[in-house]
Design a protein around this nucleic acid. Sequence first.
DNA 1: CGTTGCGGTAATCAGTTGATTACAACCGAC
DNA 2: GTCGGTTGTAATCAACTGATTACCGCAACG
Lengths: 244, 244
Amino acid sequence: MSPRNSSRTAGAGRASTDLDGAGRAGGAGAGVVADGARPARMSSEERRAQILAASIAVFGAKGYDGATTDDLAQAAGVSQAYVVRMFGSKQGLFMAAMESVADRLEVDFRAALDEADAALPVGATDEQRTHARKEAMSVAYLRLLQERGLHLTMQHAFLRGGDPAIGPVARASFGRIWRFIREDAGFDAEFGKSFLSYGMLLNTLIGLRMVDTDGTGEADELLALCFPDLDAVAGVVPRADERW
Amino acid sequence: MSPRNSSRTAGAGRASTDLDGAGRAGGAGAGVVADGARPARMSSEERRAQILAASIAVFGAKGYDGATTDDLAQAAGVSQAYVVRMFGSKQGLFMAAMESVADRLEVDFRAALDEADAALPVGATDEQRTHARKEAMSVAYLRLLQERGLHLTMQHAFLRGGDPAIGPVARASFGRIWRFIREDAGFDAEFGKSFLSYGMLLNTLIGLRMVDTDGTGEADELLALCFPDLDAVAGVVPRADERW
DNA sequence: CGTTGCGGTAATCAGTTGATTACAACCGAC
DNA sequence: GTCGGTTGTAATCAACTGATTACCGCAACG
């Protein structure tokens, strides 16, 4: 009966009425294009990446239960039916998103450590090296705030340990990060604990949208302690009024 | 048409997780009773407390979006319509639950500090006293694991900063705890930060249901570091297979 | 040329779910 | 004993949502 929620259909508008110019887009490039933009056909691999990125943003803002497959689809610019089919289910998409997040964390951490090593002056002590590497980890973690929703998607996943399907994936992701810190990076357990603690506190402050709520200043003393460069962060972090 | 989900009605549904003693005795009988038992009429104040306790357990396990008003009602042993009417809306109930959690945290922290002071040997140094008080905070926080769902309800609330109604309540609760640590308890900001960090990491591990998943042992080195008495905790914390 | 496969959507279904309404049982006060 | 405020419920509504189905259009290929 009802045409379903107005925007359940795919974003780019006119789909079926395509008859007109029907133009066609430059095949090869498959650019992101904006313009008056065509729906643009792309490889399923590209679409997959696009949907994953959009999902991370949306899941981060609304959580697993709070995000509808329609939200996800709209954010990615495709139809609701498509996301469901491509990932089998909303659950499948969430698990893929979480794995994507863990991948990204590992990649960025590894790169940060390599850079820290490369930037080390010749003849630096082990202690100096370790310190630089620890610092690099934190910086990398904060820099990832630019990846919309990454921290919060992770946080939402970490609350779903009781889900028979998602739980194992979430634990595995957490486990990977821990293993990276201990084995690949070679930090001691004590640092591992405090680094993760710090990370979870940051995630919490972000989830609370405390960075920015310039009003009350509930605990901006804590904010200042947690975010070395608060101003820089404030421009990137999700705002309180931004439902998403 | 359909009589709604079988258990949407109240029925003699078992009282929530909390022992029957629950909030305390007080009232004349108000037995929880089992038997063939009548639902038993109670004062709205008692009901309110009962629903709140049940809600903390359920919201902790399923989150705000994941918990249905029917889940909440069943856990409290009342009808779905009743919880909605008593708190106005599911949102209202969640906000009340979060405030209840913050109250409980503050009360227990305060009591723990008082006890620590009382237990201090005469002539103890300031440093000894501070150390004992810090230790008492952590112990109190872990002991609160017995309050089913408290940590996870908090954690869920901390992810809803973007909600126009819940966000302010969540931030206020967090702010209260921070203010308690800094002003009432008088700890320095550095401790405040590391205490909260530790707390958020604990909440994460609990949300992941990592305590217990005896299987993989993803990161039990970390668990051992975080939980001073892991065995004691394992009996209380929600298990992975326990959807709620 | 046709046909086969794939990217992609509209329409729709079936099950949920928060809220509302109307009504029932109970208890204390007068 | 009955009247009124409460405690509490069954039934239902209207909206939403994840998934499924059936279909469209393009491109490459033989």
